[in-house]
Amino acid sequence: MDITGSGVRIRQLQILREVMRAGSERLAAQVLRITQPAVSQNVKQLEEALGFALFRRENNRLIPTAKAWEFLRTIDAAFAGLDRIGPSIEFLRNNDTRLIGIAAPSAFSFVTLPRVVKRIREKSRSYTVQVKTGTYQQIAEHVLNGRVDLGISRLPIDERILDWMPIGSATNVCLFPENHRFAMQEMVTAEDLIGEAIIDIDPQFASHQMSVNALRYLGAAPEIVVEYDSNGHDIGFVTAGIGVSITNEIVAKEYANFGIEFRRFLPGAVYHYVVVWQKDRKLSDSLRFAAEQLAMGPTDQAA
């Protein structure tokens, strides 16, 4: 089927989408169960119809252009509605169940998501909730691709493709076991971390910049004993007394039942958490209810 007036076929967009997801024409061909030459031909024809290049080739690898990534966002938004047809048909066939998809960082599985799921089930036991976790980028992709209905993310987001409502703002805090010396302080500074064993998040995250780089600025070598790559993976190590961690207030409140404490950490940053969904999507009553429950964030836990 051609897209009116463009010379572009929907099948070509499906193939482009798979090539960019798989990272190569060979892998895309395997997923689509067609030949690699067929994939190459469709990509070439699509580029001709569009009038601009989608890839450049370096060392036999396909490198998507900036225009290709921009175009993919439009394609994903268009296909999101098609991806939702299957679950919608199932709901119409058997209306005693309804799937609500939510994506969030894994840390929100401790307090916020269980509370939200409980409230949804109290509202109606016909609803089933599917939870996906990942990075903020992966959460946005889950929402845009229609794999979930709602996501928990942080600003900034691309408001051209996502709508949102606020959850709350949070500053950095230092997380530590009960009876730690930091419990006697109103706040913790980078200087206080000198000599402390640190459970540190991957360097790409802002909390790493707040703690480890601040220590290095002071001329002290940080004692990193564990490095993790996702919010929620530090709590076990902190609870075990292995070291302290830097996170933010909203994530720290997810750890309310682990018997830990936290104090404001300086230098710090401000994080703005939001509930997101596809741009201009009209939320059903059940999704609006779920979004409002997510927007309540974790239960309050005094520091």
Rank of each mutant, 00 (worst) to 15 (best):
L92E: 13
I63R: 11
I102C: 05
T74I: 12
I63P: 01
G81C: 10
F71A: 09
I100L: 06
P87N: 04
A68C: 05
E90P: 00
T74W: 15
A78S: 13
N95P: 15
L72F: 03
A68T: 03
D83C: 10
S106W: 10
P64A: 02
N94M: 10
N94W: 09
S88R: 14
I100H: 02
I75C: 07
L72K: 06
A104D: 05
A78I: 12
R93H: 13
A66W: 04
A80W: 02
I75N: 07
A78N: 06
G81E: 14
A104I: 03
P64C: 03
N95V: 10
I63G: 03
T65K: 01
R98P: 00
I75G: 08
R84M: 06
F91Y: 14
N95Q: 15
I85Y: 10
R98S: 08
W69L: 14
D76S: 12
F91P: 00
F91L: 13
P105G: 09
I85M: 11
G101E: 02
A103E: 01
F71V: 07
A77F: 12
G86D: 15
N94D: 13
L92H: 11
S106Q: 14
R84T: 07
S88F: 15
T74G: 06
L82N: 11
S106V: 12
T74N: 12
G81Q: 15
P105M: 10
I100C: 03
T65F: 01
A78L: 13
S88Y: 14
A104P: 05
R73P: 00
L99N: 05
L92P: 02
A66H: 00
A68F: 02
G86V: 11
I75Q: 10
F79S: 05
D76I: 07
A78P: 08
I89D: 08
